[in-house]
Computed example of a mutant assay.
Amino acid sequence: MTDPATPKYKRVLLKLSGEALMGDSPFGIDPSVIHRLAEDILSLRSMGVEIGIVVGGGNIFRGEGLAKAGMDRVTGDQMGMLATVMNGLAMQDVIEQRGLEVRVMSAVSIPSVCESFIRRRAIRHLEKGRIVILVGGTGNPFFTTDSGASLRAIEIQADIMIKATKVDGVYDSDPVKNPNALRFEHLTYNHALDQRLAVMDATAIVLCRDQNMPMMVIDIHAPNNLVRAIQGEPVGTLVTSEELLK
């Protein structure tokens, strides 16, 4: 029998949306949320899991929304990238309070605030047991942090990408609007693309599909969900490429 404390995945990339950090607040960061996340991350490290984290910035700025309000899209996206840096620094602080080593690495060069992202250095940090928080998206406008998460998961050779959201998986329709919506326990990236399911944006999905990067969508607000997911429990929706299903 498998030891329940043994993780199924050795190296993971956790994608946290900015909205997930808000909790019940209308904007910004809910301290109770990031402290609870830090406790989950501490639990994973005690199991020997290597952890990379990509954070979004939608709780502070969203470039696409600013562009719709009349701002230049590139400028708006650059503001959004800086918002992810702010979230990453907040996560670094609460995780370090628990005695773990953390490195914030940015796709946007801010050397006086955090390290610039260098793939080999990020992998070395992970190998040394450090938590690596990856901010700044891809460093380019017009790309979402979902795409940035897919890219970083592939680059650091993660075993799986965990997308932490406010819902407990992927549904065939909006569960808020449709009480009979069906939740998938397992689906392929091609199915998600064909049915336009709300998993990630198309660029992120294609990246994961083409590089055989599995992803799990979970409800980050459910107690111990992150730990249970890393132990291999079916707490959300597992999304894989067709090649992995054969």
Rank of each mutant, 00 (worst) to 15 (best):
M1I: 13
T6P: 00
T6N: 12
K8S: 05
K8R: 15
Y9N: 01
R11I: 10
R11H: 10
L13G: 05
G18A: 06
M22W: 04
M22T: 14
D24Q: 11
D24K: 06
S25T: 07
S25L: 15
P26L: 04
P26N: 06
P31T: 09
S32G: 06
S32N: 10
R36S: 04
R45I: 07
R45P: 02
M47T: 03
G48K: 03
V49R: 00
G52N: 13
V55K: 02
G58K: 03
I60V: 14
F61R: 02
F61M: 09
T75K: 02
G80F: 00
T84Q: 03
T84L: 08
D93R: 11
V94Q: 01
R98T: 12
L100T: 05
V102N: 06
M105C: 13
M105Y: 04
A107D: 02
V108T: 11
P111H: 00
V113T: 08
V113A: 11
E115I: 07
E115D: 15
R120A: 12
R121H: 12
R124P: 02
R124Y: 07
E127G: 11
G129I: 07
I131C: 14
I133N: 05
I133A: 13
V135F: 03
G139S: 11
P141R: 01
A149G: 12
S150C: 05
S150I: 08
A153W: 01
E155L: 13
I160T: 12
I162N: 06
I162M: 14
K163T: 06
A164K: 07
V170R: 08
S173G: 01
D174I: 04
N180W: 02
L182E: 13
H186C: 11
H186R: 15
H186V: 12
L193T: 13
Q195E: 13
V199P: 09
M200V: 14
D201V: 03
I205D: 14
D210M: 14
D210I: 08
M213A: 05
M213E: 10
M215D: 10
M215S: 11
V217Q: 07
I218Q: 12
H221D: 14
N224P: 01
A229G: 06
I230W: 13
E233F: 14
E242D: 15
L244S: 11
